[in-house]
């Protein structure tokens, strides 16, 4: 080996060591990293642009990392991490919210740290049960591709022959999939606690595609793998905004509403920052942006107006809420594990 070689190797080794130390040491020094769980795909944009960026600007040395998650993986990681949590805040749909409160890993946030909560409609505050803030709501309706299937007017239309072979679903590991199973049970004589009637009915929908999460399901519209699917209003709106031939309907007897709470994880290393973050999520400034096209995140703040073009995706005003379906999630949550296991066995592929 020549002298030059030795030098080259030495420099490479030093560079490696420096890079390594930099990485291995990140968690202990430098700017504070704030990790917020967010939504997957393009629905993450409002969180980034109108929540995280202004938040960073207000706090100087804080850097916000958004982690896309809709599956239970993240929840499992939070529960598994002993001591400090790897994440600081997390959005949870109602069923998850109930479970998280029972399991005790989200904070009962002191109301005096959340001044913006005063402007939030009590209908939503109730849904989060004093933990975190009701950040938004979404409607569960039917998304369909008008070029390939007719417009479904009611939930039960899904069982009509025109839709056969075009249906997409998600596993009950996601709120979407779980809500659909419970909804089916209710449509056919069951209830939140008696989901038995759902199974033969879902079998009648076969053949269908099962995606592992709502974002993945929405993707299947892009690639024409499915033409009709129960979907969240936000995911459907984003698809349509991309120029895709996808429409969203609120089928009879009504779309299902699901409130999403933004929670502070109890084991967070930055409780003050986390509380400020969720307080900002119910501010008029943030929600007035998130409700705009193409996301149409349902506003919980009474001072925010719903734009006209959100017509298909959101109820026109708070008075229209009576037309929406709500599920008894307290009862539903108790059967969730069993529903998930049953689904995986019934529709194993």
């Amino acid at each position: 080996m020549t002298r030059a070689h030795w030098w080259a190797n030495g420099i490479a080794a030093c560079a490696l060591a420096t890079a390594g130390c930099g990485l291995f040491g990140t968690s202990s020094s430098g700017s504070r990293e704030f990790v917020a769980i967010s939504y997957g795909g393009p629905t993450q944009v409002p969180h980034r642009r109108f929540l995280a960026d202004p938040f960073e600007a207000a706090h100087g040395s804080v850097k916000v990392t958004l982690v896309a998650s809709e599956s239970e993986d993240v929840v499992a990681q939070i529960k598994a991490a002993r001591g400090g949590s790897p994440y600081d805040v997390i959005p949870l749909g109602e069923p998850r919210q109930i479970m998280a409160i029972e399991e005790g890993w989200v904070e009962r946030t002191p109301p005096d740290t959340l001044p913006n909560l005063d402007a939030v409609h009590p209908y939503f505050r109730e849904a989060c049960r004093g933990h975190g803030v009701p950040e938004t709501y979404s409607l569960l309706g039917l998304a369909y591709n008008p070029a390939r299937v007719p417009r479904p007017a009611a939930w039960t239309d899904l069982w009509k022959p025109e839709f056969r072979g075009h249906v997409g679903l998600t596993t009950p590991a996601s709120n979407l999939g779980f809500a659909f199973v419970v909804l089916t049970a209710k449509l056919f004589g069951g209830s939140e606690t008696d989901v038995e009637p759902a199974w033969p009915q879902i079998h009648k929908l076969e053949p269908f595609v099962v995606a592992s999460n709502p974002t993945a399901l929405a993707q299947l519209f892009e690639r024409n793998e499915v033409a009709v699917a129960p979907l969240w209003s936000n995911d459907a709106a984003v698809l349509a905004s991309r120029g895709l031939n996808v429409r969203f309907v609120q089928p009879a007897p009504g779309a299902l509403i699901l409130v999403s709470c933004l929670d502070v994880i109890r084991a967070t290393a930055h409780p003050e920052l986390a509380r400020d973050y969720i307080n900002r999520a119910v501010s008029r400034e943030y929600q007035a942006q998130a409700v705009q096209a193409p996301w149409f995140f349902g506003p919980t703040n009474r001072q925010v107006d719903i734009p006209a073009e959100a017509g298909d995706y959101l109820p026109a005003s708070f008075d229209d809420f009576s037309k929406l379906m709500r599920l008894d999630w307290d009862a539903g949550t108790r059967v969730r594990g069993a529903v998930s296991a049953r689904f995986n066995r019934e529709f194993r592929r």
């Binding site: 239970e72 499992a76 998600t170 596993t171 099962v210 995986n344 194993r348 592929r349």
Partner: peptide, 19 residues
């Protein structure tokens, strides 16, 4: 897809989502 049943996927779910 979401319900594809093989041992490795089932194990991954047992470890990460069901804990």
């Amino acid at each position: 897809g979401g319900t594809f049943a093989v041992v490795s996927v089932n194990m991954f779910e047992a470890m990460t989502t069901l804990l």
